[in-house]
Computed example of a mutant assay.
Amino acid sequence: MGGRALTTVTVYCGSLRTVPEPYLELAAEVGAEIARRGWSLAWGGGRRSMMGAVSQAARAGGARTIGVIPRSLVDREWADHDADELLVVDTMRDRKALMEAHGDAFLAMPGGIGTCEELFEVWTARVLALHDKPVVVLDVDDHYRGLVAWLGELVERGFVSRTALDSLVVTDDVRTALDACQAP
């Protein structure tokens, strides 16, 4: 597939210990596929839950990993000191900005409110033409079904343009999601 020259995918995903095993397996699959493609991973810098699974699998496959974590979360999210580069920042705003700066594309896997916040911020920046990088949602098990339906309602009500919604790629397949990260 053609498209942009991709080197680093920024991944947003769950970090809680209560995440069910299938989501950890999904994160590991994403990390392995990023490595197989010869790309690097930028992520939230944690070593547990989905964050840990994606980074460990990416490294195991030979990918470079760049973790970004706020100082206040180093212990709480168990900072991944095995990262090729672990950037400790002062605030969550600094974290998001640095993760965005490192990414050539953005992939949101299943996650909670933090993942949603990161997704909305990077997608809004794309809609406002602050960047032209792909924003992709990996929606396995209909994790984002309600959110996607609500976004459709916002289009119908005139609060979101169809163009904005169409710029967000939503898929339930890992390879399709990563292919979309390479799209122009």
Rank of each mutant, 00 (worst) to 15 (best):
Ser15Val: 00
Ala105Asp: 08
Arg47Gln: 08
Val74Lys: 11
Ala58His: 03
Leu107Glu: 02
Arg162Trp: 08
Asp75Asn: 08
Leu87Asn: 05
Asp94Cys: 13
Thr7Val: 09
Trp123Ile: 02
Cys13Asp: 07
Thr8His: 05
His131Met: 08
Thr65Leu: 13
Val148Cys: 01
Gly14Asn: 02
Ser161Leu: 01
Asp141Arg: 00
Val169Tyr: 10
Asp141His: 02
Thr124Tyr: 10
Ala149Cys: 11
Gly103Asp: 15
Arg71Gly: 13
Gly114Phe: 10
Glu85Lys: 03
Leu119Tyr: 07
Gly3Tyr: 06
Ser72Lys: 08
Val19Cys: 07
Val136Lys: 10
Leu86Asn: 01
Val137Leu: 07
Ala35Cys: 02
Ala57Leu: 13
Val9Pro: 03
Val74Ile: 13
Gly111Ala: 09
Asp142Cys: 02
Arg48Thr: 15
Ser15Leu: 07
Val170Tyr: 01
Gly152Pro: 06
Ser49Cys: 02
His143Met: 10
Ile69Phe: 11
Leu147His: 07
Asp166Ile: 03
Val74Ser: 13
Gly45Glu: 03
Gly31Asn: 14
Val30Trp: 06
Ala27Ile: 14
Thr176Leu: 05
Met1Pro: 03
Cys181Leu: 05
Met51Val: 02
Pro184Phe: 06
Val135Asp: 06
Thr176Glu: 06
Asp132Glu: 14
Cys13Tyr: 00
Glu118Ile: 12
Ser55Glu: 04
Arg126His: 11
Gly3Ile: 02
Arg126Glu: 15
Gly14Glu: 02
Met51Trp: 04
Pro110Lys: 02
Val174Ala: 04
Ile34Met: 09
Glu118His: 11
Ala177Cys: 05
Met92Ser: 09
Gln56Phe: 12
Trp123Ser: 09
Arg95Gln: 07
Asp75Cys: 09
Asp173Pro: 08
Leu16Asp: 04
Asp94Asn: 12
Ala53Arg: 01
Met51Ile: 11
Arg157Ser: 04
Ala101Val: 04
